[in-house]
Design a protein around this nucleic acid. Sequence first.
DNA 1: CACGCAATAAATGGATACAATTTAGCGGTA
DNA 2: TACCGCTAAATTGTATCCATTTATTGCGTG
Lengths: 245, 245
Amino acid sequence: MKGKTAAGEATAALREMILSGQLHPGQPVRQNHLSELLGISRTPLRTAMATLTQDGLLSYEENRGYRVKSFSVDSIIKVFEIRAGLEAMACRAAVRCGIDNATIEELDRLVTIGDRILSSGSLDVADLPEYRQFNVRFHDTIINAAQNPWLHEFVGRTHNVPLVSDRIILWEADDFALIQRSHDDHHRIARALRNSDGERAAAIMHEHVQYAGEALVDRLRNDPEETFRKLAFSPPTANTCQKDQ
Amino acid sequence: MKGKTAAGEATAALREMILSGQLHPGQPVRQNHLSELLGISRTPLRTAMATLTQDGLLSYEENRGYRVKSFSVDSIIKVFEIRAGLEAMACRAAVRCGIDNATIEELDRLVTIGDRILSSGSLDVADLPEYRQFNVRFHDTIINAAQNPWLHEFVGRTHNVPLVSDRIILWEADDFALIQRSHDDHHRIARALRNSDGERAAAIMHEHVQYAGEALVDRLRNDPEETFRKLAFSPPTANTCQKDQ
DNA sequence: CACGCAATAAATGGATACAATTTAGCGGTA
DNA sequence: TACCGCTAAATTGTATCCATTTATTGCGTG
């Protein structure tokens, strides 16, 4: 969608501004202000805002305009439940329709990458982007193996809720045990898939995702300030789900 | 979203035109033509089209405009898989967070309504709208009982794929056995929920939805013409999912 | 001082005008 | 006749302008 049209550029720019926290939840989005900030007119901006509203990043009230959607902590945990269910579904579906060798090898390679990154016994800030990318690719690989484009689309939508994306790796050095456990899940999931044990992979994946959500929410409840500070978002990788088919 | 603004009205009108088949899959949507047909200018129409694109009803290519999205039969069955998974999730979640008596009674009342409609031993066209409404309410009640607004939203999105909505009741008199079996599922689901057996309810619900998809797809493959002719859509009830929270 | 109302400012929604791109039609040439 | 390129019409994308609604400010009154 992005590329040449001003509306597409504005959509990407606005999405990134929201997800990166430049625009705060609840804050109204003034069309004049933002359009001149982006160097475009209000027309393409309004197209972008309509798009992002359906994406779930903005809310709209007639004659009162758009504002950045805010999410309660309670709401965030509930999205994680959906994401956990969907990704578990992906494991079952992937096994059901047969995983080809290329995918199995890809998973093995990815797990090895994770091993290497964590081999130092800690995960410092410099390694975060790489680990994040690894994590995204691992999950994406499984979702694609399910051969159901809608899964990709629906999981992608859960990522539109701030803080739910698997681009987010919350744990740092002080929680290395947690991230190590999380990566151990990756090992077990990959093995279960290799053994065509879809149910087992699904069970691990469900817990894997749901626990991540609970850990995040726990942190948010205890120390919102610090949690937000530690959050770092990926660069604008192609996380916009394709809606082909 | 609908109500007073031209964009909202256009969105609703366009959605209905697409779902009712007035606009054919793959057909490009000409802005001049449609805007004068709806009696509005292109600006709100474009807002509506951006919205419906994110809803999944239109596809967009830059500088080439919007087209009515087309769905392969294979794609339709895959959406039913998602819907089945999500509604099964709803059953589990509903039991987990406790179903109040009002909801149990509502389900009982709804099931009784279904009994009455089918008591004649057939389902003729005159009864279709009522049975459709009953079906929608039954499923919605369970989804709401899960107390996870995102479930409502995500299931709602599956309904944006033409033919996947539970507003669609395919079977008529000639397939009364099928619809009777389907309603028997309703009975069993309600009973399992009353007994707080979330897993059992989920299993029945999953099969309930998935089989409906398979039956529809079978028909589509055998006799697309006749299937489409028999399909009748509900009036524009409020099936647009609220995105509050 | 508080409350209410009115006038004014500001922001949104929609329509029109203009620019850029694509598509279709047409003619010429090998 | 088939193919290529050019021109013109059609269609989309953007900007600007106007109307309508909402928010704000300030004044007057109780």
